[in-house]
Computed example of a mutant assay.
Amino acid sequence: MINGAHVIIYSQDAVADRAFFRDVLGYPHVDAGDGWLIFKLPPAEVAVHPSDGPSHELLLMCDDVQATVDELTANGMEFIEPVTTVGWGAKAVLRLPGGGSLGLYEPRHDVAYEL
């Protein structure tokens, strides 16, 4: 039986992005060896959206996206997309230290992670 999910973020600077998850977000982690950190994530859910081609997106969920943006900005994070309202909630996108991006959103729909 499937008992979890493992998310991989590919990065041009994995050390910096690992430091972000460890130091800025404060996520608990294990060291799989040689500084290869694997982080415990908050509860999760998966949605399947229509698309013209295969793609994946990682969004971290929060209760108040604007307050979270303000807090992360105060910790030096850069947002490349401001908070915008979308049909299913409010969303912003931050720039990871390694150059990638990460979505942050406040759902305005029933959430599955509480099931």
Score class of each variant (00 low, 15 high):
residue 107 P to C: 06
residue 71 E to R: 15
residue 45 E to V: 04
residue 60 L to R: 15
residue 115 L to M: 13
residue 75 N to G: 04
residue 29 H to S: 08
residue 21 F to V: 03
residue 79 F to A: 02
residue 48 V to G: 05
residue 69 V to F: 04
residue 26 G to M: 08
residue 83 V to A: 13
residue 56 H to V: 11
residue 70 D to Q: 00
residue 5 A to I: 13
residue 7 V to M: 11
residue 26 G to S: 05
residue 11 S to L: 11
residue 64 D to F: 00
residue 57 E to D: 11
residue 42 P to M: 01
residue 71 E to Q: 10
residue 115 L to C: 08
residue 28 P to Q: 11
residue 30 V to M: 11
residue 46 V to D: 14
residue 83 V to N: 06
residue 8 I to Y: 14
residue 29 H to L: 05
residue 39 F to C: 00
residue 17 D to A: 12
residue 83 V to K: 00
residue 84 T to V: 15
residue 64 D to K: 09
residue 55 S to C: 10
residue 20 F to I: 00
residue 72 L to R: 03
residue 13 D to C: 12
residue 107 P to N: 08
residue 82 P to S: 14
residue 99 G to I: 07
residue 16 A to I: 09
residue 54 P to C: 06
residue 53 G to P: 02
residue 98 G to S: 01
residue 44 A to P: 01
residue 13 D to T: 14
residue 101 S to F: 14
residue 44 A to M: 04
residue 115 L to V: 13
residue 58 L to P: 01
residue 90 A to L: 12
residue 96 L to R: 07
residue 53 G to V: 04
residue 95 R to Q: 13
residue 36 W to N: 11
residue 94 L to P: 02
residue 86 V to H: 08
residue 37 L to A: 06
residue 50 P to Y: 03
residue 57 E to A: 12
residue 111 V to N: 09
residue 81 E to K: 10
residue 102 L to K: 13
residue 12 Q to C: 13
residue 83 V to P: 01
residue 29 H to Q: 04
residue 72 L to V: 06
residue 94 L to W: 00
residue 109 H to D: 12
residue 107 P to M: 00
residue 74 A to K: 08
residue 53 G to F: 14
residue 1 M to L: 11
residue 23 D to A: 00
residue 98 G to D: 05
residue 9 I to E: 15
residue 24 V to E: 05
residue 55 S to N: 10
residue 96 L to A: 12
residue 28 P to V: 10
residue 109 H to L: 09
residue 111 V to E: 12
residue 74 A to C: 11
residue 46 V to A: 06
residue 49 H to P: 07
residue 108 R to M: 10
residue 17 D to S: 15
residue 10 Y to K: 14
residue 94 L to D: 04
residue 3 N to P: 05
residue 54 P to I: 04
residue 43 P to K: 03
residue 13 D to H: 10
residue 64 D to S: 06
residue 21 F to S: 03
residue 102 L to T: 04
residue 2 I to P: 01
residue 50 P to A: 02
residue 108 R to A: 12
residue 64 D to M: 06
residue 33 G to C: 03
residue 57 E to H: 08
residue 74 A to E: 08
residue 86 V to R: 08
residue 60 L to Y: 15
residue 40 K to P: 05
residue 59 L to A: 08
residue 67 A to G: 00
residue 85 T to C: 03
residue 55 S to K: 11
residue 25 L to G: 05
residue 15 V to C: 12
residue 51 S to V: 02
residue 37 L to W: 03
residue 44 A to G: 01
residue 82 P to M: 10
residue 74 A to Q: 10
residue 62 C to V: 04
residue 94 L to E: 02
residue 113 Y to T: 00
residue 18 R to V: 03
residue 41 L to R: 00
residue 66 Q to L: 06
residue 14 A to H: 07
residue 69 V to Q: 00
residue 115 L to Y: 14
residue 54 P to H: 01
residue 100 G to K: 06
residue 71 E to D: 11
residue 44 A to K: 01
residue 111 V to F: 10
residue 89 G to C: 03
residue 85 T to W: 09
residue 86 V to C: 05
residue 113 Y to D: 04
residue 88 W to P: 08
residue 107 P to K: 14
residue 47 A to I: 05
residue 21 F to Y: 11
residue 84 T to Q: 15
